[in-house]
């Protein structure tokens, strides 16, 4: 009886060992499969990029087989419904909005960053910084509504302004990108080591002089990168300009007039009764391609600046 029990136990142990081994094998297989599954996830983002480039290129090529690419790039009349596809008015429209936005956002954003990084106490910074970031979280359609129903009537008190105009749209786009410049520049300034500031202060410099002559030069690359990134955001901004800047492409730098940007045309072209496969349908992609190239250049420039001119401490 005792012997039999012992044998049974032995068998049991061997079985257990075998099971354990099998389990370990399964785990090992599993361990090998997991990285591949995760890699598949990572590849999706690459596929997205390829998809974007492929889409824009293919449809743009179809467009350029119908419209001469030179006429597209140098034409000064954009009225697709009568067959004129010169993209320059859309580009100047986008530029106009961007310039106004930069004029508003760069001084305000930079000065906010300086205040937060150099002057504000910790307590004040902890209140103001998140509040500024709320501005960045507000949907752009809300900004558009505000530009159309508040900014434009406000400006109309002081000047002749059409209902849809580049000025109020540009100003509101500028306010939208303030938090971006402020936040990224503040990060750049905060990472300037205190020893530099203390050195300058010990030499008798005022806080303002320390900021201008020590902190700003040291944080220069980060500041410029943040501005370029903000410009890229302003170029790609869609809803504010669609709602408030109008839909009349014009080769003008007069901010009181109604204009159309690259993004606003894409919205107009996609929502109107554009039929699939028409020249107008393909023109959306050619305009999208132009927009994509502009923003990509800006993003790459921003990354290059922050890499190339970074001061390491």
């Amino acid at each position: 009886m005792g012997k039999a029990l012992g044998k049974e136990k032995q068998m049991d142990v061997q079985k257990l060992i075998q099971e354990k081994k099998q389990k370990r094998n399964v785990t090992k297989q599993f361990e090998k499969v997991i990285p591949f599954l995760l890699l598949l996830c990572a590849v999706i983002s690459v596929l997205t990029t390829i998809g974007i480039v492929f889409t824009l290129l293919r449809e743009s090529f179809t467009f350029f087989s119908e419209v001469n690419i030179l006429n597209f790039l140098t034409g000064t009349d954009w009225s697709p419904w009568t067959g004129h596809f010169g993209v320059l008015p859309l580009i100047t429209g986008t530029l106009l909005i961007t310039v106004i936005a930069v004029i508003v956002a760069v001084p305000l954003g930079l000065m906010s960053a300086i205040y937060l990084s150099e002057y504000a106490s910790d307590r004040v910074r902890k209140i103001i910084k998140p509040t500024l970031e709320v501005l960045a979280g507000i949907p752009t359609v809300v900004y558009g509504f505000f530009a159309l129903t508040f900014m434009t009537p406000l400006f109309q008190n002081f000047m002749e302004l059409s209902i849809f105009n580049a000025l109020s749209a540009g100003v509101v786009v500028g306010i939208m990108i303030i938090p971006m410049i402020a936040s990224l520049s503040e990060d750049a300034m905060s990472s300037v080591p205190n020893s530099l500031r203390e050195g300058a202060l010990a030499m008798g410099a005022t806080r303002f002089e320390v900021t201008m002559k020590v902190v700003l030069p040291a944080a220069f690359s980060g500041i410029v990168a943040s501005i370029v990134l903000a410009i890229s955001r302003a170029i790609g901004e869609t809803m504010i300009v669609t709602i408030a800047a109008g839909a009349s492409p014009a080769l003008t730098f007069d901010p009181t007039r109604s204009i159309q940007t690259l993004t606003a045309f894409i919205v107009q072209g996609a929502t109107g009764d554009t039929t699939f496969g028409s020249t107008i349908y393909y023109s959306i992609y050619a305009v999208g391609m132009t927009l994509f190239v502009f923003t990509l250049l800006m993003n790459l420039l921003s990354q290059w600046i922050s890499r190339r001119f970074r001061e390491e401490y």
């Binding site: 983002s45 997205t48 990029t49 993004t263 894409i266 992609y285 999208g288 927009l291 994509f292 800006m298």
Partner: peptide
């Protein structure tokens, strides 16, 4: 892959609409 993700985050949202 890393640079690609960084650049994708900077692509205007409307371009994703075209995609």
């Amino acid at each position: 892959i890393q640079a690609n993700i960084q650049n994708l985050a900077g692509v205007p949202s409307i371009v994703f609409g075209l995609l």
